[in-house]
Design a protein around this nucleic acid. Structure first.
Length: 403
DNA sequence: TGACAGTCAATAGA
DNA sequence: TCTATTGACTGTCA
């Protein structure tokens, strides 16, 4: 996926990846794809010392992922560089992945080697004094190539956007060149999500039978339900980590995220254990949308107050200026910084929590309009399910749930 | 083999 | 055109 073929060498990481920095990204060159690099083939990292990226990651000291992402966002924004370009060129990731990484960086200690890789790449990129101009060059080249293709396609009478426009292919199963019937994306409605959340709160690890029941009641595929549970549990783990970050920062000096001082020494913290946003250990769930920019699913603990983090985040979480005294975030034009930050960017996600209502929110259906009658039926059914789930709250065994 | 981390890519909204 | 969201998928590890 994306990467995996990291064989490029880098340098500047002999011991401290933040410390040294020499060389630079390969100058953008006319690439065969017309100026667009693809995820999975990021440009070589700055520097060279014979170390593969994996080795560098393995040798890297603990990085402050929050500070790094904050800085990257800042640089990208300041220079009007997009996540797509940055992701494909520097990280070898797609735009969505970049967005996710930048918005919700996991703490270093929670990341696997593979998960740390993008942060090391970002760090190196920040250290490259020419990183921005190189990306700008890439951007210009892309634009140029685009215009070129546009011109030639106009003369051919084809769309510039390529053959995939209006079509799709099954992810991972073939190359974009091989088209196949589109596998429609499942979009869960608010009621379905609500029911799934409630089910998750009752039983984060449902039995196959429970999954099947849920699936049939919600009119979903069992794989969809399974995926949802996986994704949701992934998120709730992250959310808990965030809360721990915040609490730690607060404890460390009462400063909000981004304030100086207060290192997120989080090694000991184990996310996903012991507390309760998912309701598995307490019935409380947390409304995260405002405080953490986490929404629904990967952002979704609800109904619990989040005053702690809104305080922690200070206003809207604009982390205070970063102090640059520690390692390396002396990125291009930046004031660098790090160390003491550790909190997540608290974006102000729009709220929209699905109320347990039979009404079908316009927003819900807007995304993937479904047959109205079916939806109405489902809504009624779901409301019933939700009601039963609420009743089931007192029953531990999901088999006792009445659907 | 199942759980989980990481990522892709479709889609919506700004 | 960009970013954010999120269902689906793949690879890794215990």
């Amino acid at each position: 996926m994306g990467e995996g073929d990291e064989t490029e060498s880098v340098n500047g990481l002999t011991g401290d990846p933040l410390a040294s920095q020499s060389s630079s990204l390969k100058p953008p060159s006319e690439d065969p794809s017309g100026g667009e690099s693809q995820p999975g083939t990021p440009l070589p990292l700055p520097g060279h010392s014979g170390l593969s990226i994996q080795e560098m990651v393995a040798m890297s000291p603990e990085l402050d992922t929050y500070a790094i992402t904050k800085k990257v966002k800042e640089v990208l924004t300041d220079n009007n560089l997009g996540q797509r370009l940055f992701g494909e060129t520097i990280l070898g990731l797609t735009q969505g992945s970049v967005s996710d990484l930048l918005a919700r960086p996991k703490p270093w200690h929670k990341l696997s080697l593979k998960g740390r890789e993008p942060f090391v790449r970002m760090q190196l990129w920040l250290q490259d004094p020419h990183s921005v101009e190189k990306l700008m060059d890439m951007k210009r080249l892309e634009k140029k190539a685009y215009m070129k293709r546009r011109l030639s396609s106009l003369s051919d009478g084809h769309s510039v956007d390529g053959a995939l426009v209006g079509t799709d292919y099954v992810q991972g199963s073939q190359s974009p060149g091989q088209q196949q019937l589109k596998k429609p994306r499942v979009v869960l409605g608010p009621e379905e999500k609500e029911a799934l959340k409630k089910a998750y709160q009752q039983k984060p690890y449902p039995s196959p039978k429970t999954i099947e029941e849920l699936a049939s009641q919600l009119n979903l595929k069992t794989s969809t339900v399974i995926n949802w549970f996986h994704n949701y549990s992934t998120f709730t783990g992250m959310y808990k980590t965030n809360v721990l970050f915040i609490e730690e920062i607060q404890a460390a000096g009462g400063a909000g995220p981004g304030s100086e001082g207060g290192s997120p020494s989080l090694r000991g913290s184990k996310s996903g254990e012991g507390d309760s946003c998912d309701g598995t250990e307490s019935e409380g769930t947390v409304e995260t949308r405002q405080g953490l920019g986490l929404e629904d699913h990967r952002g979704a603990c609800k109904d619990h107050d989040m005053e702690a983090e809104s305080e922690a985040g200070g206003s809207n979480n604009s982390p205070a200026q970063i102090d640059c005294t520690t390692s390396g975030l002396a990125g291009p034009g930046s004031s660098c910084g790090q160390s003491g930050l550790g909190l997540f960017s608290l974006t102000d996600a729009s709220s929209s929590s699905a109320a347990s209502s039979t009404n079908i929110p316009a927003s819900g259906s807007a995304r993937n309009p479904r047959d109205n009658n079916l939806r109405k039926k489902k809504a009624a059914n779901l409301n019933n399910i939700i009601h039963r789930l609420e009743k089931a709250a007192s029953k531990e065994d999901p088999s006792e749930w009445e659907f």
